[in-house]
């Protein structure tokens, strides 16, 4: 019983943060701040949702003796690792592409990337 209560609490936290990510996507002014909301809060929410599924798998494995539960928990762990690895990479790629194609950060108090010196590794346009 308490196992299920923990699962539901984790699910609720995850859904709450994913909801906030959606709200932030609508409220924020430009691409960078929207990336903050759209990628980061989603990751945090997904950690909790994956945690809930892992608990479900562990419960089936430990208490009901079902090997499929262990398989479910392992697979969800792999999915979580994939999310944690690919999410920052994607956000970084989008932000860099946006800045290189000339999108200025809205309401910015400072932009130090403007003065970035030319790198020797950079591909010339």
């Amino acid at each position: 019983m308490w196992f299920e209560i923990i699962m539901y609490i984790l699910l609720a936290i995850g859904v709450f943060f994913n909801l906030l990510a959606g709200a932030g996507l609508l409220r924020f002014p430009d691409v960078y701040t929207r990336l903050h909301a759209g990628t980061k809060c989603t990751t945090f929410g997904s950690i909790f949702i994956c945690g809930s599924v892992i608990l479900l798998g562990l419960k089936a494995w430990l208490f009901n003796g079902n090997d499929g539960g262990a398989s479910l928990a392992l697979h969800t762990g792999v999915a979580l690792a994939a999310i944690l690895l690919t999410n920052p990479t994607g956000a970084h790629a989008i932000a860099r592409a946006a800045h290189r194609s000339g999108v200025k950060p809205a309401q910015a108090v400072i932009d130090e990337l403007e003065k970035k010196p030319e790198s020797k590794y950079e591909v010339k346009k």
Binding site: Y32, L35, H36, T39, K40, C41, T43, F44, L84, N87, P88, A91, H92, A95, R96, H99, L113
Partner: peptide, 9 residues
Amino acid sequence: TLTPGTLTV
């Protein structure tokens, strides 16, 4: 980048 509020550009 994974920490909310900061994003490596």
